[in-house]
Amino acid sequence: MTQSLDAYLILASLLFTIGTFGFLARRNAIAMLMSIELMLNAVNLAIVAFGAYVPTLAEDGALIALFVMAVAAAEATVGLAIIIAIYRNRRTPLVDEYASMRE
């Protein structure tokens, strides 16, 4: 009953929306980054679940998940570097105080 593609996909959906909410609602830039990681992981979970339940996709799903992780690592690297650079200028990690895109 519990272990079905539906269950995994719903789980992934919930994780994704939690990440979405975090990205939309948190003020801290690093918390936003963590939310993004959560969303990426939700996607990964869905991919692996598809791989597990669709026989032709078993290895491909795992591989795509690995690629996603690699890209996520790159994203985290650059994202954190940007946050640190901004923090150094602004002395705050709070995103809603970054409004220079407005000008």
Partner: peptide
């Protein structure tokens, strides 16, 4: 609308 705040834009996307 052009607040310059990423999250406002992200909310728009959502």
């Amino acid at each position: 609308i052009q607040t310059g705040r990423v999250q406002n834009y992200a909310l728009g996307i959502a």
